[in-house]
Design a protein around this nucleic acid. Structure first.
Lengths: 345, 345
DNA sequence: CTGTTAGCGCATTCAC
DNA sequence: GTGAATGCGCTAACAG
């Protein structure tokens, strides 16, 4: 509200340093063509006056528009649908901040398709956020984008060996370990078998979660035996079938950990077997379904990675990189959320 | 980067609508003095062109500086110290966004002091974020601030009956329930007593947590008996004494829930009694201490409210209110974080 | 009721 | 190496 004590401007700094606005600007933005002595004078003035650049003015003067492309999997997995919605929200926010977002849907299981889609983005965008597949072709495509001067962040699923600027997502080994600890503690005292269902071990995040989970179970809960993993391809029918068979064939089953999607199928199987109250069931991603399962007591915990946070974080990282603006690192760390019935948002 | 296809400006809208820039601006910002017909023409043009205002330009033109005051408790409780540090970070961010933050430390247990401190802020600030005490005097002071045109948000601790714009913090009843569920599940199968330590029931958040906790324990875990609450005044020596006595006098003690600060004292008592591995200990707020206790297995879960998030959220809410800018509600919901050993950030 | 105009603080030509 | 001048898109004061 207050048009208070007018803030210190670059103009003030220039005057204080006895140079022109242009020179002060050159020093502040690290552009060349200023003698060392002069630069020092300006820096002194900045320090003396406690000058803080005005972000709004800088943006306006630059007058740049930032074009970002979010590359998401084509499939219709619930989490990815939620992520897509959040990207739309983020786009609305970006529109007010000199940027826009296009969304591209690509078959994530086809490295060639993904890679060539990525390469086709060169020249059209300033930044790309991609739900990546950890495959040499994809890595190469990311590196090509980077080489072409495009800012790239990986989203949800990383390609650590690439040159990407940043990974926006959780540590999936830690997520798997978290699931292990919760399942182990919730099944406290009991001994028996634990079912493990993965979408496909070809997805890096699934493999990592599985790894973390079995690591904890083997090391900390010797009374619980993890059954060989079943592959569901994230399909509800498959998860239901797998769970139904497990419940039928494993008499000492005390828990199920679902690494991927398809929680609805498992919940159906558990309810059908009337085992909701004694079986520990832990899965990923808070959705309308999993929220309901938590409230009904069918699920005992949900490990979550906030799609809204991830979408906004990707946009902020790209924007701040392209615009050369500062970033609050702490804000960009994606948490491994644990939800039980009582702390649902 | 790209100085792409220049975005649509208000100028374009005005031309399209056949009015002047000023009129277009009046319509867009809901200022009076425009005939209905004219307003419609402008709105049509906005829709037709898909106009999006440029935040940076608007801020620059307004040229306003926003002065906020964060009122924090004077004590040196770890969480409040962390909150204070985060407010400093937030201030740095705000400095780049046409605002500044002053921090005021007040004795939170003295309603009169807090209330008069708040009233003294009138005229000096555009917005106030206060860690409030739920007391009639404080409520009145908040309402006075509001009446004087100051934006007020409560932070961490709410005064629901006041006119405050917004509460930045968690639902403490839900937090207590969450603690109850975790303790109940972690103690699965066992029966016995559960110790409950509060700072002081005079603090609304402590009382609410206690309420939520006992609610869940009574309703869901009949095998666990919650002992009468002990008051620690958030002092480490007191918590240590209380915990030591509990461990000595209650033979069937299976868990401890600490509602307030002083986790270090409890951890010391548990370690001294060599009960780390079998006693369930749940407390609040992730600090260097509680992190270490989780890793060592002395604590089993920590319920957290992110001080960084709360500080930034308060600043964003105040800023967007004062500047009349849009707010992403979803981003401002403070989560009840659950941390175990494996999902520590 | 509506239009004209002068900046906001900075980045960026283009001269010197 | 350095300085002067122009304009980004919008708000607000002032004219009509």
């Amino acid at each position: 509200m207050s048009r208070t004590v007018s803030r210190i401007t670059l103009q003030d700094v220039a005057r204080e340093a006895g140079v022109s606005l242009a020179t002060a600007d050159r020093v502040l933005n690290g552009r060349s063509g200023v003698r060392g002595v002069t630069a020092e004078r300006v820096k002194d003035a900045v320090a003396r006056l406690g000058y803080r650049p005005n972000l709004a003015a800088a943006r306006l003067a630059r007058g740049e528009t930032y074009r970002f492309c979010f590359v998401l999997p084509a499939g219709s997995n619930v989490f990815m649908r939620m992520l897509g919605e959040q990207v739309t929200n983020t786009a609305r926010w970006l529109a007010v901040n000199n940027g826009y977002i296009d969304t591209l849907r690509v078959d994530v299981f086809a490295p060639e398709t993904l890679a060539s889609a990525l390469e086709g983005l060169i020249g059209h965008y300033d930044g790309v956020a991609v739900v990546a597949l950890d495959h040499p072709r994809v890595r190469a495509a990311i590196d090509d984008l980077i080489a072409a001067g495009v800012a790239v962040v990986t989203l949800v699923s990383d390609v650590p060996s690439s040159q990407r600027l940043h990974y926006v997502g959780i540590d999936n080994i830690a997520a798997g370990r978290t699931a292990g600890t919760l399942l182990g503690r919730f099944a406290a005292g009991r001994s028996g078998s634990v079912g493990l269902i993965v979408g496909t071990p070809a997805l890096r995040d699934h493999a990592e979660r599985q790894f973390g989970f079995t690591q904890v179970m083997a090391g900390e809960y010797p009374a619980l035996r993890v059954l060989p993993a079943h592959e569901s391809f994230d399909e509800e029918e498959r998860t239901q079938l797998i769970a139904t068979e497990m419940l039928r064939d494993v008499p000492d089953l005390v828990g199920i950990y679902n690494v991927g999607a398809g929680n609805r199928g498992i919940a159906a199987a558990i309810s059908a077997a009337n085992r909701a109250s004694d079986l520990v069931f832990i899965g990923h991603d808070l959705t309308d379904d999993t929220r309901r399962f938590l409230l009904r007591g069918v699920m005992d915990a949900v490990i979550n990675q906030d799609p809204g946070h991830q979408s906004r974080s990707a946009a902020r990282v790209l924007l701040s990189h392209c615009a050369g603006e500062p970033l609050l690192n702490e804000q960009e760390r994606i948490r491994i959320d644990i939800f039980v019935r009582d702390n649902l948002p």
